[in-house]
Design a binder for these strands. Structure first.
Lengths: 250, 250
DNA sequence: CGATGGATTGACAATATTCAAAGACAGTGG
DNA sequence: CCACTGTCTTTGAATATTGTCAATCCATCG
């Protein structure tokens, strides 16, 4: 009996009982594979499902009238994509695979069933939504109050940390399969400037640039550059579980 | 029988039954008044309560090592502040009153009781969290991909629209009690540049600057400047209510 | 009436963008 | 196997946008 993406995801936070597992399992359609660069959904279309990322990377973004893009977030294995759309009928952003990836669709409107049936899952979903907000907040700060150098270093570190946690099936958490275009659109910079900044960091021995993405060589060095503090990625699941009388994962 | 802040807030979305009202009422301590510039909480401290804004404005922000600030969001009457902190033991941002204001504290850990007891409230909280995310996303886009002119116009319009909805007890939704410093820290600009931009908009007859804040004179004009689309502020409560069998407000 | 916090102004500097062109690389199809 | 294509990266030069610094103004408040 192989467990579905979403079950694996939640077991990372807490021990699930049989009912929780069945509930989650009943909602998840079979995983779907996508090649790099596939548009999963587009802004303005009906928002029916969200997805869990089983492998690969995805990227949510918004396109502006003048054709420029703002990348809102990147998603790594284990992430849930699209909870944001819960409050809206139509999608507020686009979703694209940034590498080959396999995702599992999950019908949005049935989230209410989950809330009604499992206290634990309900709380965990809320926790995840709050964590998503914390990530957005940090990205906001990145865009608003940091230099290009800091932006790049900070963003790279965030993604590496998130990979650390995802760890399942990820071989090298220091390797990020990102193009400079994506990076630029995430950080509100031009590609050209990202390139120069990245080469600067490379000169200093902090990163490496390969054809298949960026590799972090010296996290401590980058941390100094960025003023990075991973606290915003460390949810306090323990208190929550204690509060609702649930048990931590085995 | 006067209803509490939070009850008023939720009645805006749906018709509450007696139990929902009692539940909410039991959790809300009496409203507290604060003068402008009062620090309600600080980043790093234990996060015990969130607040509903009954009157006045509040402002959440993060301070950087070099002393600069990034304003994350502003809150107007009817808003809930601090849901973001649900996933964390310690606060990830500061909260400050931007005008004289009265807020109602609400113990964070009892949110789980609400989830367990009322299906309707549980879903509405989730809806609000998703809306908060949509606002952050839009601010992200503002910071990343718009010029100073667009940033200012867009932000002003957002706040005005949010006031429109809050409407209760707000006399003039075109008047925003904001200093240029706050605006600058929200938009990732320098005060000087905000000032110049604001005066530019004033020259064009779009806004007015008073000692007590900024007034919007021509929303359509500003909308053109900003490329503003209010869709991200319009949650789809109807589908949600239908889905869980609840009734819209009277 | 002086003190304080915000608003305003000008001159200058830094940071990042734009434009344009070329290089590197992988995948495709002949 | 090679030329061709498209995507991503790299580089330089010119330009634009926004920031910094420093001084002044202005209103309010005790």
């Amino acid at each position: 009996m192989s467990s579905s993406c979403i079950i694996r995801h939640f077991e990372h936070y807490a021990e699930l009982d049989q009912r929780d597992r069945e509930l989650l399992d009943s909602l998840e359609k079979s995983p779907r594979e996508f090649t790099r660069g596939t548009v999963i959904w587009q802004q303005g279309t009906e928002s029916e499902h969200f997805y869990t990322v089983s492998s690969g990377w995805a990227c949510s973004f918004r396109t502006m009238e003048d054709g420029s893009r703002q990348v809102l977030d990147l998603y790594v294995p284990g992430d849930i994509v699209g909870l944001r759309e819960f409050a809206f009928r139509r999608r507020v952003s686009n979703l694209l695979t940034a590498t080959n990836a396999t995702l599992c669709p999950f019908p949005k409107h049935r989230l209410t069933d989950v809330f009604a049936t499992s206290r634990l899952l309900c709380n965990l979903f809320f926790l995840i939504a709050a964590r998503d907000q914390a990530i957005l907040v940090e990205r906001l700060i990145n865009l608003g109050r940091r230099s290009a150098r800091e932006k790049v270093a900070h963003f790279l570190l965030e993604m590496a940390h998130r990979l650390d946690k995802a760890c399942v099936d990820v071989d090298d958490c220091n390797h990020l399969p990102l193009t400079q275009v994506v990076l630029a659109d995430a950080l509100g910079l031009s590609t050209v400037h990202v390139n120069r900044t990245l080469n600067e960091l490379k000169q200093e021995g902090l990163t490496t640039l390969g054809p298949d993405g960026i590799t972090l060589l010296d996290r401590n060095g980058l941390q100094d550059v960025a003023g990075f503090d991973p606290e915003y990625l460390e949810e306090d699941v323990t208190s929550l579980l204690k509060n609702i009388g649930a048990r931590p994962p085995a």
